[in-house]
């Protein structure tokens, strides 16, 4: 039996050569813990991401819009289920189950994505979330399709395919508003103004020095930096936003041909610190909604757990 250091070195060598890791493989605790933390946050973010849009389901302007928004909200909750399933297998040897992974959201031990702490006060916000927030999500998730952890990469294939639908759905809402009345155009422009900083914050600060990020890079779980992902997002979406005749609320924004990169006014990075403490604009409100649905759904979980007793 090789000793732990040899196994660790062999594992590191495997992932750095591009080999994929499966749930049943031996893995260092450092890898397992970092994976659980990342997957838990991704799953909870899918769950929390459904909330800002769910607010618009009862107020959607037409039945067709209501149906497509409901489909999207249901997809997000479905993604949470798929990712939680992968996280559970990883967390089991740490003595952590599904219940804990979900409930740690309420104690603040587990985080949800910074973008879902923001308000969505108008119908245009629902459109911008579908088009640009999901657009940003696909940029970061597509970069993880080659992740070293194979069970997650497999689930992401389905997630990314469905996010593609969400983007089309969001584009459809935004295009309708952009081609609508002056008031509708203004509503879209206001929503873009509200979301622009959040879209830059989405990918995190350019130099992420956090120890947990370093672990993700070391084990080839991720390979693209926050700034690389943000630049990719800007390249894809800035021209589309401009093509609709919308104004991006940053006079400094331009593509630097020589440097081959977008120059932009940095967002207020300190906002991410407040959000990480669940002190963002709607952090507590959304956590309250989540807690309510968790409590109201308790009887369903309990009923699902006791089918044998019911069958008698």
């Amino acid at each position: 039996m090789p000793n732990h250091d040899d196994r660790h070195a062999a594992f590191l060598d495997r992932v750095q050569r591009g080999e994929k890791i499966e749930a049943t493989d031996w893995m260092p605790d450092e890898y397992r813990i970092a994976m659980v933390k990342f997957l838990q946050m991704h799953a909870l973010s899918e769950l929390m991401g459904a909330l800002p849009e769910k607010e618009w389901v009862p107020r959607a302007p037409t039945l067709a819009r209501k149906l497509s928004l409901m489909a999207k909200v249901q997809d997000e909750v479905g993604h949470a289920q798929l990712i939680l399933r992968v996280a559970e297998d990883l967390a089991a040897p740490l003595g952590k189950g599904r219940e804990e992974l979900v409930a740690e959201l309420f104690t603040g031990e587990a985080k949800f994505h910074n973008v879902f702490h923001m308000p969505a006060p108008t119908w245009a916000d629902a459109g911008i979330i579908g088009w640009l927030v999901d657009g940003a999500a696909v940029v970061s998730q597509a970069a993880l399709l080659t992740s070293s952890y194979a069970p997650y990469a497999r689930v992401l294939q389905r997630v990314c395919a469905e996010e593609g639908f969400h983007i089309q759905h969001g584009e459809s809402i935004c295009l309708a508003l952009a081609e609508g009345t002056p008031a509708q155009r203004q509503m879209l422009q206001d929503a873009l103004n509200r979301w622009w900083e959040a879209l830059l914050l989405f990918f995190g600060p350019p130099e992420s020095n956090s120890p947990s990020a370093a672990v993700l890079f070391k084990y080839r779980f991720r390979t693209k930096t926050n700034e690389e992902l943000r630049q990719k997002f800007l390249t894809k979406y800035v021209p589309r936003i401009w093509a609709l005749g919308l104004t991006i609320p940053d006079p400094q924004l331009r593509f630097d041909e020589e440097a081959g990169r977008w120059v932009y006014t940095p967002p207020d990075w300190s906002k991410l610190k407040a959000i990480a403490r669940n002190q963002g604009p709607l952090s507590q409100y959304r956590l309250g909604l989540r807690r309510l649905s968790y409590e109201q759904g308790r009887w369903v979980r309990e009923a699902l757990l006791a089918p044998a007793a019911q069958a008698v």
Binding site: E88, A92, L305
Partner: peptide, 12 residues
């Protein structure tokens, strides 16, 4: 090796 889930749920 059985992969774990919630102790009372089973994985299918």
């Amino acid at each position: 090796m059985a992969l774990g889930a919630h102790p009372r749920f089973r994985v299918y």
